[in-house]
Design a protein around this nucleic acid. Structure first.
Length: 226
DNA sequence: ACCCAGGGTCATA
DNA sequence: TATGACCATGGG
């Protein structure tokens, strides 16, 4: 099977297995909430991010104007459960400043994807993964986000350019084998994360529930190494 | 009492 | 280019 066919088969399998598990992602979420979430989740468990988002929502601070109006101490307090709260407060401020510089969040997100990505990368606190997440989930433009789970899972399957290859190399691997389509790219990354959160954590060298390990109820041809 | 989480920045060589 | 320290809370 070609690389492209294999990647597509894995996608189909993930899609099937998570159809009944339920979709836990942001496809219809508010863009600003997606952006805040993608900054807060940096090297952090999503459960902690949810606490921070709940507190921001309760304080009516999940929109650019309200968040900008908060002083640092208040914003830090709301964001604290997500960890690294001083850093993340600074990152949120940096993002708000960029949105401001473009007139509004809507204007910023309306930039063409390449310009948006470049602009985001120039923003303090936003790196490649966060930028791609914002492009695909907030601006809803094509971008394939690569995260630690993607590297781990596909490396274990014997696919991809190697676990510690560069971000760009991993991104090229997927982009080169999967036709450009915003929804497909968006869903693929989301499915990888949803799958990995359940079964492919660092401390579990073998996946406990898929065909990488014995006794998997989710076995399918796409996961087989041959 | 560890280890880890849907990264990113900065200093150093 | 590539490694390492640092950020920091909450769950396993």
């Amino acid at each position: 099977m070609s690389q492209a066919a294999r990647l597509l088969a894995i996608y189909r399998e993930l899609e099937a297995m998570h159809a009944w598990r339920g979709w836990h992602w942001w496809p219809d979420a508010d863009p600003f909430e997606v952006i805040v979430g993608s900054i807060l989740v940096q090297n952090t468990a999503w459960s902690n991010v949810e606490r921070a988002l709940d507190r921001l929502r309760a304080a009516d601070a999940l929109n650019p104007n309200a968040m900008r109006a908060l002083d640092d101490a208040k914003l830090e307090e709301l964001v604290r459960p997500s960890g690294q709260y001083r850093q993340k407060t600074k990152k949120l401020r940096a993002f708000l400043a960029v949105a401001d510089a473009h007139g509004s969040l809507e204007n910023l997100l309306a930039l063409d994807p390449a310009t948006l990505r470049r602009t985001l990368l120039e923003t303090w606190g936003i790196g490649e993964e966060t930028a791609d997440c914002i492009v695909v989930y907030a601006a809803r433009q094509p971008a394939f986000a690569i995260d630690a789970y993607t590297r781990r899972i596909f490396s274990r399957l014997g696919l991809g350019p190697g676990e510690n290859a560069s971000y760009g190399a991993w991104q090229q691997y997927f982009v080169g084998h999967i036709a450009e389509d915003r929804d497909t790219w968006a869903r693929y990354h989301a499915l990888i994360v949803m799958h990995a959160k359940h079964i492919c954590r660092k401390q579990r060298p073998l996946c406990g529930e898929c065909s990488l390990a014995p006794g998997c109820g989710w076995a399918g041809t796409a996961w087989a190494s041959t």
